[in-house]
C-alpha cells in the first residue's frame, strides 16, 4: 500500500519531537545549566520549527497525540516509587501527610489569591491552580475544575523550571536541619525538576521529594475530581 506524502507529515513531527528530545538530553548532560533543561530546549526548538514551517498546532497534534496517550500509563507507573518506598511511608507517614496537605493548601491558596489579585480570566485561573504537582496529575486536575489542561502543562513546566532554580537559594537560607524538610521543599515546590535536584542532594531527600510529589498529585486530582462533580 502506498502512503501519500501528506499522511506521512504528521508522523514526521513525532520523529522530529523525539529526535529533539534525545538531542537536548545530550546537550543538557554536556552543559548542566538550568536553561539547558531538556524540557525547555525541546519546547522552544519544537515551537520554533512549527512556526517556521507554518504548521498549525492541530496538524502537529495529529502526529504527536499518541504521546499524550502515554501520560495515562505513565501515571500508573508512579505506583513503582510508592511501592519501593513503602518502608519510609510506613515509618514517616504523618510527616508526609502534613507536607502534602499544607503544601497543596498553600499552592492552591496562593495561586487563587494571586490570580484574583492580577484579575486573570476564570479558565486561566483554573489552569493555574494545580500547577505545583507533576504534569500528568496537574493536567488531569485542571480538566476537572474547568481549566485548559494544555495551558496547565505550560504553567507546570515554568513552575518546575523556576522552582528548581530558586530551590537552591531557599535551601541555603532556611534553617532546615532535616532531610525531610529539604525533600518536601523541592518535591512540593518544583515537582519533577525538584525531585531530580533532591536526588543530587541525598538519597533520603530524593525519596521524600518523590513521595511528596506523587501524593500531592494524587491529592490534587482527587480533590479536583470531587470539586468538579459538585460544580
Amino acid at each position: 500500500m502506498m502512503m501519500s506524502a501528506e499522511s506521512l507529515i504528521p508522523m514526521l513531527w513525532s520523529a522530529v519531537t523525539i529526535a529533539l528530545y534525545f538531542a537536548s538530553r545530550r546537550l543538557h548532560r554536556a552543559l548542566g545549566k538550568w536553561w539547558s533543561s531538556p524540557m525547555l530546549v525541546t519546547w522552544i526548538a519544537c515551537g520554533a520549527l512549527i512556526l517556521a514551517f507554518h504548521t498549525t498546532y492541530q496538524d502537529y497534534l495529529r502526529g504527536t497525540g499518541w504521546m499524550i496517550t502515554l501520560l495515562g500509563p505513565a501515571t500508573v507507573a508512579f505506583a513503582l516509587p510508592i511501592h519501593e518506598q513503602r518502608a519510609l511511608i510506613r515509618k514517616h507517614w504523618p510527616l508526609l501527610v502534613v507536607g502534602v496537605v499544607v503544601g497543596s493548601a498553600i499552592a492552591f491558596g496562593s495561586s487563587w489569591a494571586l490570580a484574583a489579585a492580577l484579575d486573570l480570566p476564570s479558565n486561566v485561573r483554573a489552569s493555574l491552580l494545580p500547577r505545583s504537582v507533576s504534569t500528568p496529575f496537574a493536567m488531569a486536575a485542571s480538566a476537572k475544575i474547568g481549566g485548559l489542561p494544555e495551558l496547565t502543562a505550560s504553567f507546570t513546566a515554568v513552575t518546575g523550571l523556576f522552582g528548581a532554580a530558586v530551590g537552591d537559594l531557599l535551601l541555603a537560607r532556611l534553617p532546615l536541619r532535616s532531610s525531610f524538610a529539604r525533600g518536601a521543599l523541592l518535591g512540593m515546590g518544583a515537582h519533577g525538576a525538584g525531585v531530580a535536584k533532591a536526588h543530587e542532594i541525598g538519597q533520603e531527600e530524593g525519596a521524600v521529594a518523590g513521595l511528596i510529589m506523587v501524593f500531592a498529585g494524587l491529592l490534587n486530582v482527587v480533590i479536583a475530581s470531587f470539586v468538579g462533580v459538585i460544580y
Binding site: 499544607v102 495561586s111 494571586l114 513552575t159 522552582g163 536541619r177 529539604r182 515546590g189
Partner: peptide
C-alpha cells in the same frame, strides 16, 4: 508574576511546617 511569587511561598511554607513536625 503569579508563579514567581507563588513558588517560594509553597516551598518555604511546606519546608518550615515539615521541619517543625520533624
Amino acid at each position: 508574576l503569579a508563579i514567581v511569587v507563588g513558588v517560594p511561598l509553597v516551598m518555604g511554607g511546606t519546608a518550615l511546617v515539615v521541619e517543625l513536625g520533624f
